[in-house]
Write a protein that binds this DNA or RNA. Structure first.
Lengths: 341, 341
DNA sequence: ATTGAAAAGAGGTACGTTCCTCAGATATGC
DNA sequence: GCATATCTGAGGAACGTACCTCTTTTCAAT
């Protein structure tokens, strides 16, 4: 005999199929006592729901929307590709995905996009946007209409989102600091660069970076964060100026994007080779930089994991299923020249 | 209208359901011309096979056996747990798993276990065993009876196995070397320890380690590998002797198991704090060692990935489906104190 | 004892695919 | 034009679960 089915459970528990179904799907109309009897039968026979048959019968369609930053962000593009891949593979079947791209630095446009969603036929929403009061309010409104909301990569801690899928940015910053401290051969100064300190994850990375630096590596002096505001020219200028003024610079930690510009500026200044450079997100240009020994390590999160995890969490939220936090914890990956995937 | 079904394809191509089914499942009995017509209909409508319905109807049962090393190996235990988890989740449905544990250092017993398998009702086999001629022969015999064979963690390169699921051990060794070189503050000597150099992955790790050390870090001198043969007493002795004889020792790279013994020996000698220690596999004791700053980094492979990947590959081999190599490549993870999962 | 709501049973259809049989059509070689 | 082999069609039964309607039972409150 193969795997037990609902029929076997019904027989074992001495109830009808309908009752088993009610218990398994947590529908009302069953006495506590009977629920327990069915549960016991399930445990005794080791019944596992056949998800294939269940999904087939259920004919459930999940409508999910993903809001990602627009523009040239290689990371967002990679994430969209990963979603597309999950969609074509069996991971996301019976799921309809809509990916919307919004301007990262324009809260107004983000809110407009959120308002444009047809909440009637939306089951879940995944958001990767900076934290602003307007966005928090919009999320509240969306939650009120019963849509599951997940934040992606960058959290909205004080909003009513159901779950956050992404890495702990403080821990990521701490990891960067540990690498910087361990890699540094001498004492000196370390520069921290980012797009903007207004984004939650940059702030948290800096926080974590400082924690470890202060505790474990006080031979290294951390300079105030420089912000590029996503502007290559500005990035170029601030890097050139800093390098000229700081002869004791031994490392650079880049918490945001614009790393290609950063590296070319350092290359032009002739200091790149002597510096320990750490960046985030494994983009094609960072792969090249690792291979060329221009970047010592890249701290990354697996976009495939992010995509699959977000989909899984959204689906479980829609079905009121529990979420296994351990499984959804996205790892902080350390990528060096020799363990490039 | 929702997703197109086989019925839609049949209508679109002007053939019957049976013919569509024959084409989709590459069964014989269909003219080239008709095959093309069906293919076109599939492309035109964008038909995607509903895997849920397919699996349900197919009623395929996959019978897989896993051969893992027995004993106290925390890694093998974790792998078995991961398999168990995959089994209870939907990842492994319609799959029957048998996990057999064999003595690692006894090729004879391994072969006996392999011979005891009922090949008639076995669809796939995953092996994590050291490479010996006897094992290679046994694999040949198993392959002859049409069973899919996958090697796990440690490859059997000259056998007739279908696929290897695990990390590139040479690259893992190179990663360790890169870390050792970057972490080292001064020049000195580095010790390499392992269970036995007769196992393929230890050999490869050493190979990779030497490559990078030779090329990039010739300020560090690598000592000949020490083998513990899985014997704690021997481990203790050889470590004590080496530490006493080598005052310029700055790092230890442990390629195998027995790390708890290794660390306690180093701790007793009073040199642990000054050493950069690198190990493999994130066991509970290595987690602790990372937190206590006794181990600088652990190079690990995700056992969950290994388990899922092995199952996926075995299933695809059974169904003659293609294997997406990129998806099955297991990452070499670098775990530090701050990015512990 | 009667009532009525809650709980449980009985029986059914549907989901999309696989795989089976049997009959009918078409092509191929003589 | 006939036998033979190869295609194709038609129809249907399964797979295990979900979910529907309609009855029947249970049990406590009156």
């Amino acid at each position: 005999m193969g795997r037990p089915t609902v029929h076997d459970i019904a027989k074992e528990a001495g109830v009808s199929l309908a009752t088993v179904d009610r218990v398994l799907n947590a529908r009302p109309g069953v006495r506590e006592k009977t629920i327990a009897r069915v549960q016991q039968a399930v445990d005794r026979l080791g019944y596992i729901r056949d998800t294939n048959a269940a999904n087939l019968a259920r004919q459930r369609q999940y409508n999910f929307a993903f809001i990602l930053p627009e523009g040239s962000s290689q990371f967002a593009n990679a994430l969209q590709d990963a979603l597309q891949e999950a969609y074509t593979s069996q991971v996301a079947d019976r799921t309809h995905l809509r990916v919307l791209r919004v301007p990262l630095h324009n809260p107004h446009a983000i809110v407009r996009t959120l308002r444009s969603l047809n909440l009637e036929r939306l089951d879940g929403l995944a958001l990767m946007v900076p934290e602003t009061p307007q966005v928090r309010d919009a999320v509240s409104r969306i939650k009120d209409s019963g849509v599951a909301v997940v934040t992606l990569v960058s959290d909205l801690p004080n909003s009513r989102r159901d779950f956050f899928v992404g890495v702990d940015s403080i821990a990521a910053g701490r990891t960067a600091a540990l690498l910087m401290g361990r890699f540094a051969k001498t004492s000196g100064e370390v520069l921290v660069v980012t797009d903007s300190l207004r984004s939650r994850d940059s702030l948290d990375r800096r926080l974590g970076f400082d924690q470890i630096m202060r505790n474990d590596f006080n031979n290294l002096k951390i300079l105030p964060s420089l912000e590029s505001y996503g502007d290559p020219d500005r990035m170029k200028r601030i890097i050139e100026r800093t390098v000229a003024q700081r002869p004791r610079l031994i490392g650079v930690y880049s918490m945001g994007s614009g790393n290609t510009t950063l590296l070319s500026a350092l290359r032009n200044s002739g200091t790149l080779e002597a510096l320990t450079v750490l960046t985030h997100e494994l983009t094609p240009s960072m792969r090249r930089a690792l291979k060329d020994d221009e970047v010592a390590a890249v701290i990354a999160q697996n976009v495939g994991h992010l995509a699959r995890s977000a989909l899984r969490v959204l689906r479980n939220l829609c079905d009121n299923f529990p979420i296994f936090e351990a499984q959804e914890r996205v790892r902080i990956e350390v990528i060096l020249r020799e363990n490039l995937p």
